[in-house]
Every structure is written in C-alpha cells, then in structure tokens.
Design a protein around this nucleic acid. Structure first.
Lengths: 92, 92
DNA sequence: TATACATTTAAACAATTATCTAAATATCGA
DNA sequence: TCGATATTTAGATAATTGTTTAAATGTATA
C-alpha cells in the first residue's frame, strides 16, 4: 500500500499510468512520450511494477506493460474510507 | 494535485489524515500518536496543509487541525478516471 | 553466428525529503 | 509582566529519489 502511494507520487509515473489506461504499450513506446532517457523510464516502470500498479510481459524483443487496476482499486478504497460517512476505521 | 499525491506518499501523513477523519485535533494531540519529535510532526502537518489536505486554526494556545475532504475528493476523481470505463481522458 | 534493436542494470551524482536539536514565537494565567 | 505551555522555524545531517551515461542482457534476423 505504501509502495502504491509512493509510486503515484511522481508525475511521470502518473502519466505512464494514464497512457496505459488507453492501451497496453511497450517500454519504448512509453518512453517516446517523455523527454527523458530510457533508463529513467525503465526505472519508473520498475517502481510501478514493484507497487503492483503495472505488469510486464516480454513479447519477443519488446516488453509490454499493462495497467493493473486491482491495486488502483485498493488505493481508491483507502481514500473512499476517508471521505465516506462510515466510521468503522479499520486500520488497513 | 502533485502536492496532494506527494503528501499522501508518506505513511505518517496518511496516519495523520486518518486521525483527523475521526475528529479535529491539535498539533500536540496528533504528535502524541507518533514516536517522533514534535518538529517533525509539525513539518508533516505543514506538508499536508500546503497540499490543501488539512486546514489549521489557532485556538488560543493551541492550533487545531481539520481535514479538508475537498482535496481528497480531487485525488479520488483522478483515480476514478482511470478505473472507470469512460475514456474521455481529460488531462487534469 | 554476427549485428542490430529493445530494454534493463550498474554506478555515479544532484536534488529532495525526513528527521533531529536548539531557538524563536505566541498565548495563557498567576 | 513572568513563567509555563504549545507550536513552529531554523539549521544541520542522513536517507531516499530521480536522473544520467555506460555497460550488460535478451531477442531477432541477415
């Protein structure tokens, strides 16, 4: 959970998530959207992967990244617990 | 928006938010929950305030902190845009 | 199998962040 | 106004993070 929030704290990583919302993309395709070296993007992708926010799968020469909405849902739940009226404050 | 995500990236700050969800509290009351110096807590409170996640109001000797759910709602919206089916990808 | 392409890993470095102690500011009550 | 209490601000430092270039790994193809 902490990893997820930390992963979301960076604007580049949030943008990557948006890109993957539209469709799966390879690391190179993702990198093209940014003014940043490929190793940097790779690093950000790894942060997202560690957090469980994306998954990767090698397809031949390429590595294809996919959004994992499950973890996003968990973050959503955490936030919803705060704004919702129910006060059972379960400490997740 | 970036400030909000960065503020949420720290576990101490998330815990502070949870504490404020239950009720408003003074800086000192908040600090009692943590194994950390008061200046550190003050620093975290300031980060939350800068992000707009909390508001503060002096009450005599004390400073009382309040949760501002409006900004939390904005973060929620950002996340909901990702998980929802609608694909109008407005770049907020 | 040699070369090119896609991507990651390694190593270094700068910038940011979290933390502490000490000092400053603000308010209250005697 | 003085002393106690509540909190923040300042200054220092250690840890973490984001970035780069160079090298390594894995795959495809001629």
């Amino acid at each position: 959970m902490n990893e997820s929030f930390k992963a979301l704290a960076d604007p580049t990583r949030r943008q990557i998530i948006r890109l993957l919302r539209d469709k799966d993309r390879t690391a190179g395709e993702i990198a093209e959207f940014f003014n940043m070296s490929k190793p940097s993007i790779s690093h950000h992708l790894n942060a997202l992967k560690t957090a469980g926010l994306v998954q990767d799968e090698r397809q031949g020469q390429f590595i294809r990244y996919t959004l994992n909405t499950t973890v996003l849902d968990e973050v959503l739940s955490w936030l919803l617990e705060l704004t919702d009226g129910n006060r059972d404050k379960k400490g997740k």
